[in-house]
């Protein structure tokens, strides 16, 4: 994403390869959900799995071997409850060990918990979990990059539900006011809150128009179509441009596991052995069969 690349030379994966990695990410998520005794925020993990894959394997200019390079793209997980999806996506990119995540997740002294902590887990850019905090942090990082004359991007992933928080819109206003074209927000528009379907309680629509009204460049993508996500990433305006971009990704909470999709009971949960098998079989049936 960057004029001044951090990532070692090498070809970026194809859409088909990304699809396969997203499948693998979901399978690993389900295994963790079947291993850990407590609840995992599996619904919002699955809705964001393709976005995480597109970012960590294609869009973000990051290098797991050089996590403090000042020119790296910054990624902030504003919907911090999808931490485990981020940990695994990052492990598949070489940041962490997947086994380490599964073995210690949620346990005493683990670096991997329900919400990400930068101090406990270097490589993660910010400690998040309380909703509505990511975008203001991202504005600060984007402002700093501008000030230093750097051309990396700052990318922030939000849930649509959390954009009910006023701080999101305060930051959206500041981003446009300060002409932060190096700032990109991805919204996981899964249309579910924890206890209700979004539009039952909160009138988000006309959602893209809200961002347009704040002066943002709005891109609408299918958050489960890798080609659509790749096109959105390829089409991002230059970091030096003067408008922040939001990529609104239409998604499904629980995507890939039929009995979790559109199901309020699966905001968070855990899987017994039989349910894990059922979930993996459901996921397998969605897998694209083309050769990679």
């Amino acid at each position: 994403m960057n004029d001044d690349a951090v990532r070692p030379e090498g070809e970026r994966p194809s859409v088909a390869e990304l699809e396969e990695r997203a499948y693998e990410l979901r399978a690993k998520l389900l295994h963790l959900c079947g291993t850990y005794e407590g609840a995992v925020h599996i619904g919002g993990d699955l809705s964001a799995a393709d976005i995480f894959t597109a970012l960590f394997h294609y869009g973000l200019d990051v290098d797991p071997g050089d996590i403090s390079n000042p020119r790296r793209d910054r990624f902030l997980l504003s919907k911090g409850h999808a931490a485990v999806c981020m940990y695994i996506a990052m492990s598949m990119r070489g940041f962490f060990s997947y086994e380490g995540i599964v073995e210690t997740y949620g346990k005493l002294d683990s670096a991997y918990g329900m919400h990400p902590c930068k101090v406990q887990l270097p490589g993660v850019e910010a400690s998040t979990g309380s909703l509505g905090h990511g975008l203001p942090l991202a504005v600060g990082m984007a402002l700093s990059a501008r000030h230093r004359g750097e051309t990396h991007r700052v990318v922030c992933l939000l849930g649509d539900g959390e954009t009910g928080e006023g701080s999101v819109w305060e930051a959206a206003m500041a981003a446009r006011s300060n002409e932060l074209g190096n700032l990109v927000a991805f919204v996981d528009r899964n249309r579910q809150l924890m206890t209700s379907f979004a539009e039952e309680r909160v009138a988000f629509e006309p959602y893209p128009d809200k961002w347009r009204a704040f002066g943002w460049n709005v891109v609408e993508a299918d958050g489960h179509d890798m080609a659509s996500l790749v096109a959105a990433i390829d089409g991002l305006p230059a970091a030096q441009s003067d408008r922040p971009t939001v990529v609104i990704c239409e998604t499904v909470k629980g995507k890939g596991v039929d009995f979790m999709e559109h199901n309020l009971a699966w905001h968070a949960g855990s899987l017994g052995a039989a349910d894990l098998e059922r979930a993996l079989a459901a996921l397998e049936s969605t897998r694209k069969k083309e050769t990679v």
């Binding site: 407590g38 911090g80 949620g106 918990g113 329900m114 919400h115 902590c117 400690s127 979990g129 309380s130």
Partner: peptide, 11 residues
């Protein structure tokens, strides 16, 4: 309230 629920320090 307190160190309950295993959510980490945000929670």
């Amino acid at each position: 309230g307190g160190l309950v629920g295993n959510g980490g320090s945000t929670h």
